[in-house]
């Protein structure tokens, strides 16, 4: 898939600050202006079905956190993790996973009711209403350069394979 990554909806997130270092310490959500974030930059966007769920918490995001230095070396300016959870849950999850840096190189943001991911296609959302999760995001990863999608890969079964792995993303850059 090519084209522009949607910028009509700005995901909300809570920037990490030392003042609110604790997982239980809440700050105020702000908007991540996607158009500005993408402008002239290389950004990785990766989506997960749910914060604190097994695959996302034990495999997917830890894989990215381990490779932050590699992403920087390859010229990635920012990593945006999206999920349909609210910004409070996303911020707590980011801190619990161990990302506690005021640089906020990786941000944990909310795709409100999956309205951003839905624009990528039906395969980028997953209706998990049957198990009480509501509309969630399919697991996917995108490389966005100056707003243009250079790589976009989604998983079939909400699983975590090489498609959305850090290594695959790094190979695409």
């Amino acid at each position: 898939m090519s084209g522009k990554f949607p910028t009509n909806i700005n995901p909300k997130y809570i920037p990490y600050t030392k003042l609110h270092d604790g997982v239980l310490s809440c700050d105020v959500p702000v908007e991540l202006n996607l158009a500005n974030t993408f402008k002239g930059k290389k950004v990785v966007v990766t989506a997960v079905p749910g914060a604190f769920t097994p695959t996302c918490t034990e495999q997917h995001i830890p894989d990215y956190l381990k490779n932050l230095a590699e992403f920087k070396k390859k010229g990635i300016d920012k990593i945006v993790v999206l999920s349909a959870n609210d910004p409070f849950v996303m911020a707590a999850w980011g801190k619990a996973l161990g990302y506690r840096d005021e640089e906020n190189y990786i941000v944990f943001a909310t795709d409100p009711n999956a309205t951003i991911s839905k624009q990528l296609g039906d395969n980028y959302v997953a209706d998990l209403s049957a198990v009480g999760f509501g509309l969630r995001l399919q697991r996917y990863a995108a490389l966005v350069e100056d707003g243009e999608i250079k790589y976009l890969g989604n998983e079939d079964e909400l699983g975590f394979t090489e498609i959305s792995s850090a290594k695959n993303l790094l190979d695409q850059i």
Binding site: G50, A92, W93, G132
Partner: peptide, 17 residues
Amino acid sequence: FNDAFVVNAWGKVLIKE
């Protein structure tokens, strides 16, 4: 309101604290 995984993680952090 949240799903069982989120509520569980929250509960664990609160209980420990």
